[in-house]
Design a protein around this nucleic acid. Structure first.
Length: 415
DNA sequence: AAAAATGATTGCTG
DNA sequence: CAGCAATCATTTTT
């Protein structure tokens, strides 16, 4: 198949084979020249046909038997000797393409390039969730088809990579064979062979890079499709919202959990800290926007805390949910407690709970209980100014919610 | 199917 | 950089 290359250099088209030995007087073997060589070879291989094969075979044989052959060989050697120095100059060691490094790193991080089992970030997240406590059984399910898609990508990636690898090796062996064959006709130093191999490898690694690139893209798309929480958002579990609401309403006067508190809440709810932050952000603003709508909820949670406190039981895991009044804050809170009785209709609004709450409220007395007095609650610096600061002007009397049927708010709770 | 609820994002502010 | 406000994109409820 390759014999054609071995024939006597054709007047015009033989540049390729000559280039291989670096014997071209005018063209020292600089890198671009090398690339040209391989291109030519490829082209020539492509154009070989069966009939030219026979022809080449014959020519080769003729050449090998030619009486002048030894002479030709020695001449070539001589030429090569003279020009051999120039070939050495082309020695740059490929500065480890940073782009490729980046791609590699990413693929590795994404678990595409790594060990077969590694689930990458997904596995890490799942592990984290698992260790956090069994509060969120649903998020591993959420990742499962993400993971399967990722595995699919990884599979394709690996098989493609292998294909390329194989093709590269195959091609390299071909070229090596070819060079070996040629070495009978003309001098070929092992150095040159190496050079050819490295050139080939470079070519193929360029292709590989493309592969990696597109794999990266696919992963990114997948990621944004599945991991973008906004797309496939799931409501928090019932318990989670419960925990969060509990905290919110028991710190109603200052619903700004410190970093530590957020972390704890996050752990308890099986969500991330930033999710806790989001939740509180949303909650604050939505609460403020329409207090009436939340009144009921507020009461429920107030009762909850109150009851749990009254029973003396620490149903909460440990210290950090101190007894606190839902009504310790600004004026609206007072009215809130007044509204409590009106607002209880739907759920356990029987007199039983209300009386409990009332007694509790009385027992707590006015004012003196800041939130988080009891426990080791940390105040974040900005929390200090918040007490009067957040949702300042929201006096319920003015905010009679449009959706709220009963005239509700009479802030003269003194009855 | 429409409306409400809800978690996340974005731009802006201090 | 945390928080607010508006908004988006879903999910849940009606």
């Amino acid at each position: 198949m390759d014999e054609r290359l071995l024939g006597p250099p054709p007047p015009g088209g033989g540049r390729g084979s000559l280039g291989l030995v670096g014997g071209e007087p005018g063209g020292p073997g600089e890198p671009p020249g090398g690339k040209q060589d391989i291109g030519d070879i490829l082209q020539q291989i492509m154009t070989i046909t069966d009939q030219s094969l026979d022809e080449a075979q014959a020519k080769k044989h003729a050449l090998n038997c030619h009486r002048m052959k030894p002479a030709l060989f020695s001449v070539l050697c001589e030429i090569k000797e003279k020009t051999g120095l120039s070939i050495r100059s082309s020695q740059e060691e490929e500065p480890v393409d940073p782009q490729l490094m980046r791609l590699d790193n990413m693929l590795l991080a994404e678990g595409v390039a790594g060990p077969e089992k590694g689930g990458g970030s997904a596995a890490a997240a799942a592990a984290a969730a698992a260790s956090g406590g069994g509060v969120s059984p649903d998020n591993s399910i959420e990742h499962s088809d993400y993971r399967s898609k990722l595995a699919q990508i990884r599979h394709i990636y690996h098989s493609e990579l292998e294909k390329y690898e194989q093709a590269c090796n195959e091609f390299t062996t071909h070229v090596m064979n070819l060079l070996r064959e040629q070495s009978r006709t003309r001098p070929v130093a092992p150095k040159e062979m190496e050079r050819m191999v490295s050139i080939i490898h470079r070519k193929f690694s360029a292709i590989q890079m493309q592969l990696k690139q597109s794999t990266c893209e696919a992963v990114m798309i997948l990621r944004s499709r599945f991991l973008d929480a906004r797309r496939k958002r799931r409501n928090f579990s019932k318990q989670a919202t419960e925990v969060l609401n509990e905290y919110f309403y028991s710190h109603l006067s200052n619903p700004y959990p410190s970093e530590e508190a957020k972390e704890e809440l996050a752990k308890k709810c099986g969500i991330t800290v930033s999710q806790v932050s989001n939740w509180f952000g949303n909650k604050r603003i939505r609460y403020k926007k329409n207090i009436g709508k939340f009144q009921e909820e507020a009461n429920i949670y107030a009762v909850k805390t109150a009851v749990s406190v009254a029973q003396g039981g620490h149903s909460r895991t440990s210290s950090p949910t101190p007894p606190s009044s839902a009504g310790s804050g600004g004026s609206f809170n007072l009215s809130g407690s007044g509204d409590m009785f009106l607002g209880m209709p739907g759920l356990n609004g029987d007199s039983y709970s209300t009386s409990q709450v009332e007694s509790l409220r009385h027992s707590m007395g006015p004012g003196s209980y800041g939130d988080s007095l009891g426990g080791g609650q940390m105040y974040s610096p900005r929390e200090m100014r918040a007490n009067g600061g957040w949702q300042e002007a929201v006096t319920p009397s003015s905010v009679t919610s449009p959706t709220e049927g009963p005239g509700s708010v009479h802030s003269d709770t003194s009855n």
